[in-house]
């Protein structure tokens, strides 16, 4: 039973990692129906920014909590700026082009950012300090779940709730939903569509940056390539949950995390990815729009 619980919690943590990144994919897709492949790279840039800030602040001798907060804030701002710029440079000029062009542009942007960080920073793995202290109350359970894992779980839940509130209950959210339904009509009723799209990209990038800081702190190492694998898995999670749906992205992340964790625990880690993608195929056969997705006339 203990073993099951450990695998369950391990899967939950891994799932919330996927979910944090999947939120950005799903938001952008919900608004402009673009799969933003550069999203994983925004996450990676968030982690790198945080590492640079942390190195500087540690030299100045600040305490860890302050460092974590400042590094997080700087990473969010910096990554949001990247997300905003990427949208303006790579996607906005292609908004009325065929959808495939924007997709190719996204893949190009992803490769560009990866190689840019590799050249501007380093191709090597870098050590990322553990910023989240061991909480006292968790000590007896440290062999099952660590404090970093708890922080990741809570953050994912909080971010999901905040995004849902943003979309469901604010004027900006109303404008977002209007834009996603019909851009032309939204413009006609006086919504600044360009601004709404920018806000979506900024919000998505901010969640990716938060994810970047927490996940790097959990895993303890980063390099220019970390965004790629997480990006692919998060994309799968978003599709699994129903792309365009915020709770769907989180649910998809959890399901993917659990599938991988249990497949490793009870079968073999050799088949981890096989099971994860087998599950994806099965779900898409029975629910083509994903678990919480609405089936409609949209197609990629």
């Amino acid at each position: 039973m203990d073993y099951f619980l450990e695998l369950f919690l391990g899967g939950l943590t891994r799932g919330s990692i996927y979910a944090l990144i999947a939120l950005g994919y799903t938001m952008v897709y919900g608004i402009i129906e673009l799969i933003n492949f550069a999203h994983g790279e925004i996450y990676m840039i968030g982690a790198f920014t945080a590492l640079i800030v942390i190195s500087v602040l540690t030299l100045m001798g600040m305490n860890t909590i302050a460092i974590l907060v400042i590094a997080g804030v700087v990473a969010v701002i910096y990554s949001s700026a990247y997300g905003y710029t990427v949208e303006k440079i790579a996607y906005k000029p292609l908004r009325n082009a065929p959808r495939l062009s924007a997709l190719i542009s996204a893949i190009g942007m992803s490769l560009f950012l990866q190689n840019y960080v590799r050249l501007a920073q380093t191709p090597n793995f870098l050590s990322f300090p553990n910023l989240i202290p061991d909480f006292e109350f968790i000590k007896p359970y440290a062999h099952i779940i660590g404090s970093t894992e708890i922080v990741i779980l809570i953050t994912t839940a909080v971010v999901m709730v905040l995004l849902t509130i943003l979309i469901k209950f604010t004027n900006t959210g109303k404008a977002m939903r209007a834009t996603s339904q019909d851009k032309t009509m939204a413009m006609l009723v006086g919504i600044n569509v360009n601004r709404i799209i920018s806000i979506t990209f900024v919000a998505g990038s901010a969640t990716a940056a938060i994810g970047g800081v927490l996940i790097a702190s959990h895993i303890g190492m980063i390099n220019f390539y970390i965004g790629f694998m997480v990006g692919i898995k998060a994309f799968v999670a978003a599709v699994l949950g129903g792309i365009g749906s915020i709770p769907g992205a989180v649910l998809g992340g959890f399901i993917l995390g659990w599938t991988e964790s249990f497949a490793t625990g009870y079968v073999s880690s050799d088949y981890e990815d096989v099971f994860a993608f087998l599950f994806l195929v099965l779900i898409l056969i029975f629910r083509p729009a994903g678990i919480l997705g609405r089936s409609g006339k949209h197609e990629i």
């Binding site: 073993y3 450990e6 695998l7 391990g10 899967g11 943590t13 891994r14 990692i17 996927y18 062999h143 996940i215 959990h218 895993i219 390539y225 694998m229 997480v230 898995k233 991988e260 964790s261 249990f262 490793t264 625990g265 073999s268 880690s269 050799d270 981890e272 990815d273």
Partner: peptide
């Protein structure tokens, strides 16, 4: 006796399995 996937996000499940 197991193979792990290089570049995976984390290896917590494999680590639990080692412990188990």
């Amino acid at each position: 006796y197991e193979g792990v996937t290089p570049g995976a996000v984390d290896y917590s499940a494999v680590v639990q399995k080692i412990k188990h």
